[in-house]
Computed example of a mutant assay.
Amino acid sequence: MDNLSVAPKVSVIIPTYNREKAVCRAVDSVLEQKFIDFECIIVDDGSTDNTSEKLAEYSDSRLKVLLQENRGVSAARNFGIANSCGRFIALLDSDDEWLADKLAKQVPFMEEGGFEISQTDEIWIRKGKRVNQCKKHEKPEGMFFDRSLSMCMVSPSCVMFSRALWDELGPFDEDMPACEDYDLWLRVGLKYPVGLLRERLTVKHGGRPDQLSNSVGCLDLYRIYAIAKLLYSGKLSVEEQTMAVEELQLKAGFYVGGCRKRGREAQAARIERLVQDIVLGKQVSPAEIIEK
C-alpha cells in the first residue's frame, strides 16, 4: 500500500489448506471483531476442496484471498505477511477462532505495555468438547527461552507481534513442514519478552486427523533442527548454549529411541552421529538433520 497513512493497524494472516468449513468459522470470527482497523489476508495453500469457492462468497473489503501452490504453512504465512501492511501482525490458524473482543483488547495491551510480541490465553476444544489444559501448558510471560526449548510456549492463533520484530527475526523457515513456530519463538525468546494478556480470547480446536501434529512424522526431528540452527548461529551466551545442548541431547535421545523401536536403525545412527558432532563442537550444517 503506497499511502501508509491509510494502512490498517493490524494485519491478520490465515493460512489454509483443504479446510473449507473450518476456515469460514475462522474468517467469521475475524469479521465479528469489535476492533475494526484490520486487514485479513487468507492464503489458500493449494487447496483441492471447495475452499476457494467458499472464500469467494465473502464481500468484505478488508478481506484479501491469495493463492499459491501447496508449499506448506510456513510459506503460506510468509507469503501473507509479505503482502500485508499493518503495524501489528496477528496470526490465526484456519481451524481456530477468536472471541469478538480479542483484537480490541490485545492491541491496547501491546501499545500500553510497549510489547513487540504478546499472546492471549486460550480455550481448548478437543473433538468438540472443552478440555482443561495441563499445568505444563500454562502460558508464561516475559523472558522464557529456557522453557521454550522444552516445548512451544507461544500459540500461533494467540500471538500478535510488531512488524519491526518480524523484519528483524522472521521469516518462518520454509524447510520445516512442522514446528516452524517453535523455531521462530526460540529466536524471539532470545531477545524480547512476551507479554501475556490473561484472558481466554482464542478458541483452539484440536483432535482432528488433518492437524500437522498428526500428519507429520516425529516432530522432535524438526525441534532438533531448530536447536541446531541456534547453536550454529553463534548468537547464544554460554548459559544459553549449555541449555540448548542439554535439550538437544534430550530430544535426540527420544527421537533416536523411537527410530530404533520402529526398525529405522540407519536414521537413528545418522541423527545420533550428527548430534554428537554438534555437542563436540564440530561444524555440522543443520540442514543435514532434515535432509531426505
Score class of each variant (00 low, 15 high):
Val6Glu: 15
Ser11Leu: 06
Glu20Thr: 04
Ala22Phe: 06
Ala26Val: 07
Ala26Phe: 06
Asp28Gln: 10
Asp28Leu: 03
Ser29Glu: 12
Ser29Cys: 04
Val30Trp: 03
Glu32Ser: 15
Glu32Cys: 07
Asp37Glu: 11
Phe38Ser: 12
Val43Gln: 04
Glu53Leu: 13
Ala56Ser: 15
Gly72Asn: 10
Val73Gly: 05
Ser74Glu: 02
Ala76Asn: 08
Ala82Cys: 05
Ala82Asn: 11
Ser84Glu: 06
Ile89Gly: 01
Ile89Thr: 01
Ala90Asp: 03
Ser94Gly: 10
Asp96Asn: 12
Leu103Met: 08
Met110Ile: 05
Gly114Tyr: 00
Gly114Arg: 03
Ile117Leu: 03
Ile117Lys: 08
Thr120Ile: 00
Asp121Thr: 05
Arg130Ala: 15
Asn132Ala: 15
Gln133Ala: 04
Glu138Asp: 12
Gly142Asn: 05
Gly142Lys: 04
Leu149Thr: 14
Met153Ile: 12
Arg163Met: 03
Arg163Asn: 11
Leu165Arg: 01
Trp166Phe: 08
Asp167Ile: 03
Pro171Ser: 10
Pro171Asp: 12
Ala178Gln: 12
Lys191Thr: 10
Tyr192Trp: 08
Tyr192Gly: 02
Arg198Leu: 00
Glu199Trp: 04
Lys204Ile: 15
Val216Ala: 08
Leu219Cys: 06
Tyr225Val: 02
Tyr232Leu: 02
Ser233Leu: 07
Gln241Tyr: 01
Ala252Val: 00
Tyr255Met: 05
Arg260Pro: 04
Arg264Gly: 00
Ala268Ile: 01
Leu280Glu: 09
Lys282Arg: 13
Ala287Cys: 07
Glu288Thr: 01
Glu288Cys: 10
Ile289Asn: 08
Glu291Thr: 11
